[in-house]
Design a binder for these strands. Structure first.
Lengths: 285, 285
DNA sequence: CTACTTTACGGTATGCGTAAGCATT
DNA sequence: AATGCTTACGCATACCGTAAAGTAG
């Protein structure tokens, strides 16, 4: 059994050419390497070096041994990487969210139910979420459409209605009801990373300009202090996160009202039972 | 960097189920393994076991780690095997002989010229020798036909004539000359492992029965004490290895006279110069 | 004179085995 | 009782770093 440490030192010598250089790179001493290389030769029963009084060089076998050693080192590195990755994967719950509101509502609940687990949350349009659940990329996902798949277990976990925040003087506030189409042609403040809601842009409002804000703070700043309309929703209104001096008006289009569904693999239903129970008890969104 | 030793112990535990059993197989103590496994977990920063007071079991990560560990152990074993094999290959001269006589004549010469090298000698019909030289399977070969290949260097290294040993009373001894065909219908003693000479059987003597002897001693015994004819050659006759009470008669067919040629890759001619010089000085066969 | 390898020496720390403790079957 | 894991303790030895010697360019 050849120790990894010796192979590492051999590889370092092959790479840096002298024991001194290798010793420095390995944060050890020259004599230590001299001894290691002798031990390696003795362990193998094979001569690997051409020695002159003040020069050390790999012989033909040594050159090849250094190559082979790298393979073993790679294998050893892979081992470490793979074990750590697998361990982490078992301590991590990966979740896909289709919108920011379910994420901010559910994340603390999940944290609470699965104490000690790391949560890895992605947000995007949810069209591929079912496939990613099936491929084990995600353990859970929140969709905005009821899944129709026998391998998938789901439970409704909330509801969200879209509102628009307007200046009180805005003509739209006098409309009996507002449709998305009524916003066409306007410049509207929009927060990025809004999951599936992003699909709205350019649908019923081909001539609207969306002023996309990456930063939450900028969005708040501009929403409050400019006259641009901005989107908000039942969630923020219910929590009292309302823009001062603005009027919040509900949008009546059907795509502005959505239900959310928490899903997992049917085969892993029991693993997440506690969580599903929890969201039953909690009135959310 | 995870030490091979720890991986080996992990694999042993996975294989034998308990630390005690693994310890016995590894010729070490239980407590040593306990400590090693803790060190492995600590080196990795990953928990690999389910511990109860008197029971140790791999957890999910541990099971996988043991699998991965085996890969590293295999790689480490391969390293050792391959380095040793390559070292040996550099200390070994592989030679293909087309007949036993060149082998017994040349082997001591080669041993003498390449002191300290191991000689690996095969004997067989030489039809594929050129290819095997080119594929580096053989460093040298002795053929019974002059090679016609610009990549191959050669030098004649001997000559051999085939004789037949007969009872003095045998009618054939009165023939002016003997051909192989004259032996047809007879039972003839033959030693196995005779290289290309084996091609004779069934050529000009379709009705002869060859009494194949694997063992040299059996062949001598039967040759001497039975009345069966047996093959011999100029080499043995010149050395005085003659059967008592028999008459040796030369066979006149052309295929019963052969020259031998020592060959190597033209590109390695210099490597074997000493040997080729040697066989020039030596009168052989 | 500088750069490098090797040997020698002394200290340390790693790792082992024995013994003992404790829990489970 | 028997089996098996863990902890504690004392010890061997393997390995390391420093120092020094020797050699080649």
């Amino acid at each position: 059994m050849i120790e990894i440490n010796l192979l590492n030192q051999l590889a370092a010598f092959a790479k840096y050419g002298t024991l001194s250089a290798a010793a420095e790179k390995l944060h050890t001493s020259q004599p230590a390497l001299t001894r290691s290389m002798k031990k390696l030769e003795s362990d193998l029963g094979v001569s690997l070096f051409i020695r002159s009084k003040n020069h050390l060089e790999l012989n033909e076998v040594g050159v090849r041994a250094a190559k082979y050693a790298q393979d073993v080192l790679d294998a050893d590195g892979d081992f470490e990487t793979k074990v750590k990755a697998y361990d982490r994967s078992l301590r991590t719950i990966s979740i896909g969210f289709c919108a920011p509101v379910p994420q901010s509502v559910l994340t603390p609940i999940i944290n609470n139910v699965f104490d000690g687990m790391t949560i890895s949350a992605d947000m995007s349009d949810d069209s591929a979420f079912i496939d990613r659940i099936k491929s084990h990329e995600y353990h859970l996902a929140v969709l905005h459409e009821k899944p129709d798949d026998e391998d998938i277990y789901y439970k409704k976990c909330g509801h969200e209605d879209l509102y628009i925040s307007l200046m009180p003087s805005d003509p739209l506030t006098f409309y009996p009801e507002i449709h998305l189409a009524d916003l066409d042609g306007r410049s509207i403040l929009l927060l990025s990373r809004i999951g599936f809601w992003a699909n709205f842009s350019g649908n019923k409002t081909p001539n609207a300009t969306y002023l996309l804000q990456v930063d939450q703070v900028s969005f708040s700043e501009l929403s409050t202090n400019s006259s641009y309309p901005s989107f908000t929703s039942s969630y923020y209104i219910r929590r009292g996160q309302i823009l001062e001096g603005k009027v919040n008006v509900a949008l009546v289009d059907p795509e502005c009202h959505t239900d959310y569904y928490l899903v997992c693999l049917a085969s892993e239903k029991n693993k997440y039972k506690l969580l599903f129970d929890q969201i039953a008890e909690t009135t959310i969104l």
